[in-house]
Nucleic acid binder design. Structure first.
Lengths: 244, 244
DNA sequence: CAGAATTTTGACCAGTTGGAAAAATGTTAG
DNA sequence: CTAACATTTTTCCAACTGGTCAAAATTCTG
């Protein structure tokens, strides 16, 4: 039903010294080597995603993760000797995936199609990867203790860059002049809301409108919001250019 | 510096049987009776808000709360015999306060000033009560196990009512025709973002723009977004009517 | 298949957690 | 002042937590 995992795209060309169990010298977990290791680590990460995203780091227990992964706790610890290494791995993978949609926003494209696509992509991520979204939200709520540097460096740089793109579009009169940073924030907020506050959204919409169609409704609404705002306008002006 | 607590406005006219310790018959915690009880409970709730909002229910410990409240764990347990009763009380108080800004939105007022004020009020709450916002967000992330009924009844009813108000405004051509539920969601999302993702916001804005002014910037931006969207417009058209 | 390496298990542990009991210490009305 | 109640502290506990370890079971490789 739901796409289960974010692909890691992490093949790591270096062959490394093998034959040494999964646990590495300096406390870091090595890349999986055997087929079994790869499989089991994936199973564990999948289970951990479920549990961490629901209870946060402190609220999640290794036992819960192990149970969901269908293995004993010591067995799990054989693959990830520390709880926080599982978490670190998840978060590490996550941020890259999280930034991807924004990275795709192309300075050379048409502003409105670019922005609209960005919103769509973010909304799709909220729909297809809600647990990842919640994991991220949990980390943020707790003050992002484990990823603050990534936020301050990688994320900030990317946003700075894209803010410049937006500013350029504003200078060219292609989109309204407004604050590019808060613009980006508002796209994050509105889209991730549908993952992080899913319970609320569904409860408020009720069984009818809270069904599968809610993401399409949201997409339509957000498109309108970011394009026109709430100012009433006469009959059919052509919608956002660049169709589909 | 920061306003510390949401006022409870809970005087509870009923005199009740007194003299019976704080613990009530059926496991429920009674309303505080003596001056000391009221004070201590307030201190505890304040400490608990801090801890719960940061770590979520499972991640928070009674010891942490007790320490922050400046008392021993058993002493704290004298006032709230169960951990989850502290949480329940916090959440209970919270939801009422949380709904207030939306309740104020007046069907007889002018749409744009009403909506704009609502956004302002929500943004002020994000600024002045970030812990309350995070407590709420934490609960949502976990699937709202402890308040789902309130969400499904009280919150839903209120939103339904206000959605009708918005629809009426749309019918009268006073605001653009769009989805009233998702409109409300987007206001929640964009404003609460500044409390729940505060770390990220500050990190991305950097030391300069991430300072105290960020809420004013956000207010200005959101006003523009909800009024006009991103469609570029010619020179000064009058801003949202109905000042301050 | 044998031997080596990998994987899994069961027993265990020290620290933490939510909470109970009861004794000790205030506080206050009569 | 003192009995009755309210509050606080001390001590304790059973369940849970993250994590260790050695032995057993399994898988892989030649």
């Amino acid at each position: 039903m739901a796409p289960s995992k974010l692909k890691s795209a992490e093949t790591d060309a270096a062959p490394r010294r093998r034959r040494k169990s999964v646990v590495a010298v300096d406390g870091e977990t090595e890349r999986p080597v055997t087929r079994i290791q790869r499989e089991k680590q994936d199973i564990i990460l999948e289970a951990a995603l479920e549990v961490f995203s629901l209870h946060g780091f402190r609220g999640a227990t290794i036992d819960q993760i192990a149970e969901r992964a269908g293995m004993s706790k010591p067995n799990l610890l054989y693959y990830f000797p520390r709880k926080d290494e599982i978490h670190r791995r998840l978060i590490g993978q996550l941020l890259k995936t999280w930034l991807a949609p924004l990275e795709e926003m192309d300075a050379n494209g048409d502003p409105f199609p670019e922005i609209r696509s960005y919103i769509r992509r973010k909304l799709e991520m909220a729909r297809d990867f809600p647990r990842e979204s919640r994991l991220f939200a949990n980390e943020m709520l707790q003050g992002a203790p484990r990823i603050i540097e990534m936020i301050e460096v990688d994320l900030k740089n990317l946003v700075d860059e894209k803010a410049r793109v937006l500013l350029a579009w504003m200078d060219q009169g292609k989109i309204a002049r407004t604050d590019p940073y808060h613009l980006i924030f508002s796209i994050w907020a509105t889209t991730q809301h549908y993952a992080d506050f899913d319970v609320q959204v569904r409860a408020v919409l009720g069984p009818g409108r809270g069904g599968e169609g809610r993401f399409e409704d949201a997409a339509r609404y957000l498109e309108h919001l970011f394009l026109y705002g709430l100012t009433p306008r006469p009959r059919s002006i052509d919608k956002m250019s660049g169709k589909s």
